[in-house]
Design a protein around this nucleic acid. Structure first.
Length: 615
RNA sequence: GGGGCGGUAGCUCAAUUGGUUAGAGUACCGGACUGUCGAUCCGGUGGUUGCGGGUUCGAGUCCCGUCCGCCUCGCCA
């Protein structure tokens, strides 16, 4: 075989005269019969034009060249020369060509179902996933894979330089059924026993801290058997880390350093100091714990004014949980979004849609008021607001041409509905900037002071907002340990030492200071409704470890796939994963998941209850 | 589990209200062609309209079911 001396993106004018060998795929064939044939040869690095000239080459070679087709795999030897037919400015190698003297067809391709071509419209994703090896040949996909590699390398460099140790943790792990649904793996050696695939290496990294590792990092695969989304796969990768002898600020500082290094090296962007915002403020102003602060459309609580209006459903909503403290999730509130210029841009049809939209989040509806050119309120509930018009104009800073969207319900419902509506309105109004990879702003935010617990809507029980190993913030420890278990108001107000990093309204990282104090950990389990026996059964290894000299510690995890999406400017997570899965967790190329034999199941003490439907 | 969109030649798409033999570009096959740049020109093969029922004189088109893909709500400690 003619082993390559160069790759297909390498040769320049300075190589003219050199005899070279290239290997690669036929990207395009431009033939003039057996007299003259041009081939663009492609590999991961680029394209180089090959010329087969009938005046110099024997007939057999010209015949073979004339039969070349897209995606054939070649090895050639030839001389580099200036292009006599004029340069091609589209290619970095466009000033030269290789005049072929020897041709080896290493693999004659079957007719491919599609060509790895970024110029034409892409075939449907089903086909791309079925023939992933062809799809991945596309320059765009090669670029994404290189970006992903670079991100991993910068990550390892940065954390290595900061004294972090990369440690592998098990993939076959213990089932801990809180949180996401797990993938299970039956054991052959322990009849009836099962492993679970880790949702994250959370407990292992904490135990590594107890083990004196001090600073841990891993680019780890995590598994959550939940339905995917455009930016979510059941199997995904985290930049997972943990630090000993730290409080919240030390972890956040290290993360800011990482983010700054990453953006600098990946796209030359200098990340400014990152603003912090409390969870409560984020929910009040933006209705979501990962606010997109690239645009306004903030939410205003107008409960007090609404209470003095004549709008019946405002008053009904405000009557809910009126005895509860201000930020109690079940307390009735009325909130509004001012949409500057909305009177013109948001048609009746669109605002009717908003009504339907907020119902999807449990709200009764969305009232709409337009401020006309004379400053008067129009539509719907306008006449019932007359008495408080001046107060609304002042509270919302209304101007002619504005639209105001109102939702009245409990704090939890109202906040969620308006938080989601705000993002929809922003898209409808066209005020969402382009993504960072396309020249838009990179807008970072660190969100802190999350509640430790929230009430599950269905069961009414407390659940950990982050996870059960998250510590209360340092100034809350005593209040937490001493809080009566049935004191909902106090418990709901306890703030954790958790933090999220938000980029353009997307959570890219989340973490916390962990509990290293068995008394605090016991209290958490108690609130979560776990008896000490149950807690010991599930997490004995952790509780035991914490009792043998656990240092204060904390950490964070970044979603690696989402980071790559940001740098490559794609909104499809499957584009940044070499071999992704579909909505039902299928791999269309390998056809996983697949049936297994009775013998395999028997050896694992497993019996399938599935019966194929009768056709 | 719920809602929405889609599935027509290898691929990307078209096909009037339900109406003749389902078309085009591209790929593929054959031919012509000595400076192309996603080469060009000529000719040709290629279809169980995802699958199964139903309505109808007649279904790619309408109805029901089902499978697959995508988006989304729930879910994702």
């Amino acid at each position: 075989m003619l082993i390559r001396t160069h790759n297909c993106g390498q040769l320049r004018e300075s190589d003219i005269g050199a005899t070279v060998r290239l290997n690669g795929w036929v990207n395009s064939y431009r033939g003039h019969g057996t007299g003259l044939v041009f081939i663009d040869l492609r590999d991961r690095y680029g394209l180089t034009q090959l010329v087969f000239d009938g005046e110099d080459l024997p007939k057999e070679v010209m015949d073979a060249a004339d039969k070349l087709r897209n995606e054939d795999v070649l090895a050639v030897e030839g001389k580099v020369r200036i292009r006599t037919g004029g340069e091609n400015p589209k290619l970095v190698t466009g000033k030269i060509e290789v005049v072929v003297s020897k041709l080896e067809v290493l693999n004659k391709t079957a007719n491919p179902p599609f060509l790895p071509d970024d110029l034409n419209k892409l075939p449907n994703e089903e086909l791309r996933l079925s023939y992933r090896y062809i799809d991945l040949r596309r320059p765009r996909m090669q670029q994404i894979m290189q970006m992903r590699h670079k991100l991993a390398k910068v990550t390892r460099d940065y954390f290595h330089e900061n004294g972090f140790l990369e440690v592998d943790t098990p993939i076959l792990y213990k089932s801990t059924p809180e949180g996401a649904r797990e993938f299970l793996v039956p054991s052959r050696n322990v009849p009836g026993g099962w492993y679970a695939l880790p949702q994250s290496p959370q407990l292992f990294k904490q135990i590594l801290m107890v083990a004196g590792c001090d600073r841990y990092i891993q680019l780890c695969r995590c598994f959550r058997d939940e339905d995917p989304r455009a930016d979510r796969q059941a199997e995904f990768t985290q930049v997972d880390l943990e630090m000993s002898f730290v409080r919240r600020d030390q972890v956040i500082d290290m993360m800011e350093g990482y983010v700054r290094r990453l953006w600098k090296e990946m796209c030359g962007y200098d990340v400014p100091p990152i603003q912090r915002m409390g969870y409560r403020e984020a929910m009040e102003r933006f209705g979501i714990d990962r606010p997109d602060t690239r645009y306004g459309l903030e939410i205003t609580d107008i409960s007090e004014i609404a209470g003095r209006s004549d709008v019946a459903f405002f008053k009904d909503a405000l009557a809910k949980g009126a005895d509860r403290p201000k930020f109690n999730s079940q307390r009735g509130v009325v909130k509004a979004i001012r949409v500057p210029g909305g009177a013109e841009k948001l048609s009746r049809k669109i605002t009717d849609g908003y009504n339907e939209f907020v119902r999807g989040f449990g709200a009764g509806g969305c009232a709409v008021v337009k401020v006309n050119a004379q400053g008067a309120f129009e539509t719907g509930i306008a006449k019932f607001l007359e008495g408080v018009k001046a107060d609304l104009v002042s509270a919302l800073k209304l101007e002619p041409g504005d639209t105001v969207l109102f939702v009245a319900d409990t704090y939890a419902v109202c906040t969620k509905a308006l938080g989601e509506l705000r993002q929809k309105v922003a898209r409808d109004m066209g005020v969402v900037p382009k993504p960072g990879a396309e020249g838009g702003p990179w807008n970072f935010l660190i969100v802190v002071d999350f509640p430790m617990f929230e009430k599950n809507k269905d069961t009414g029980k407390w659940v950990a907002m982050h996870h059960p190993f998250t510590a209360p913030n340092d100034d809350q420890r005593d209040a937490f340990v001493n809080a009566p278990v049935d004191d909902e108001v106090t418990i709901e107000a306890i703030v954790s030492a958790g933090y999220d990093i938000v980029l353009n309204g997307q959570e890219i990282a989340g973490g916390s200071i962990r509990i290293h104090d068995p008394a605090v950990q016991g209290k958490v389990f108690q609130l979560l409704g776990m008896t000490p026996e149950q807690a010991r059964e599930k997490f004995s290894f952790l509780l035991e470890a914490l009792s043998y000299g656990a240092p204060p510690h904390g950490g964070i995890a970044f979603g690696l796939d989402r980071l790559v999406m940001n740098f490559t400017g794609t909104d499809n997570i499957r584009d940044v994963i070499a071999f992704p899965k579909t909505q039902i967790g299928a791999d269309l190329m390998t056809k996983a998941p697949s049936m297994v034999t009775e013998e395999q199941l028997k050896e694992l003490y497993v019996k399938s209850t599935y019966t194929a439907p009768v056709k």
